[in-house]
């Protein structure tokens, strides 16, 4: 029994983690490696002989990294909240209510997802300009909803359809309104789905590059990806150490948050369904 668990669980998990994490090992090394060791074809690339914190200090002292970090956090959090709320309402309506046009609506929301941003930033910019939303951080919140809402809505539709109708019917018989059903019966049951939608939405906005680059112009409105590439890539000289330190430092808090989320949504549904 013990041995089979090694083969069916531990070894595969370890293999997966090695594959998924090995670029990070390189990133960590790079962020503490002096430049002359990094660019060496003879030195062991898996190790660092003279670790240095100068890259990290440079990042924190010589750039506006903390500012970028909070910008990114604020935009990502805002976009996530707006999208998840709007998506949840829409998903509930589409999955749980019968009304004319719901099919068409769901299709429309879906199609909205097919639009690649790399080319459509010019027409989109036109709208932002007309709405006087250029160079305002909060406008990114609204822009990001365009690629978050379609996905979150569909994800939540998937989860909501799996929740047994019997629960809802029982509540209706007891005289609950549809809104009460939504907030008091379905919402607690859909917490895992909402958490995954949140994780997806947050990560996608956290990652976004092109819109943040072209729609913001003041230095104080830069996000982490934009700030790092504009400040630390100078022509053909990349400041590898600070770049990677920036990528990692920004990621760690997000991982920490997810760490707690993950636990929450494990217990969420399992308990609720037993009622």
């Amino acid at each position: 029994m013990r041995r089979s668990r090694w083969f069916t669980l531990y070894i595969p998990v370890i293999l997966f983690l090695v594959f998924l994490l090995f670029p990070f090992y390189w990133m960590v090394l790079t962020s503490i490696k002096p430049n002359n060791e990094l660019v060496s074809t003879t030195a062991n690339p898996f190790w660092v002989r003279h670790p240095t914190f100068s890259h990290i200090l440079y990042l924190l002292r010589e750039t506006s990294y903390p500012r970028w970090f909070w910008n990114t956090m604020a935009v990502a959090a805002g976009a996530t909240v707006v999208s998840v709320v709007a998506s949840y309402l829409a998903a509930f309506a589409i999955a749980r209510l019968r009304f004319r046009g719901s099919e068409g609506l769901s299709l429309g929301i879906y199609l909205a997802y097919l639009v690649p941003p790399a080319i459509l930033f010019i027409p989109l910019a036109d709208i932002l300009l007309k709405l006087r939303m250029f160079d305002r951080l909060w406008s990114l919140v609204l822009v990001y909803t365009t690629f978050l809402i379609p996905f979150c809505t569909w994800l939540l539709i998937g989860y909501l359809k799996n929740i047994p109708v019997e629960l809802e019917e029982a509540a209706r018989i007891d005289g609950a309104s549809r809104l009460q059903v939504m907030t008091q019966i379905i919402l607690p049951l859909s917490v895992p789905g909402i958490i995954s939608a949140t994780i997806f939405a947050f990560t996608l906005s956290w990652n976004e590059y092109l819109y943040a680059l072209v729609f913001m112009s003041s230095p104080e409105n830069k996000t982490v990806p934009v700030g790092l590439t504009t400040e630390l890539i100078r022509g053909d000289l990349y400041q590898w150490g600070p770049l990677m330190a920036g990528a990692l430092l920004g990621t760690l808090p997000v991982v920490a948050i997810y760490f707690f989320f993950v636990e929450y949504y494990v217990s969420g549904l399992a308990g609720a369904l037993k009622e």
Binding site: F16, T203, Y209, M244, T251, Y258
Partner: peptide, 16 residues
């Protein structure tokens, strides 16, 4: 931990 590749901004993980 397995979420890491998904979280790090692509611009930067691509550099890695």
């Amino acid at each position: 931990l397995m979420l890491l590749p998904w979280i790090v901004p692509t611009v930067l993980s691509a550099i890695a």
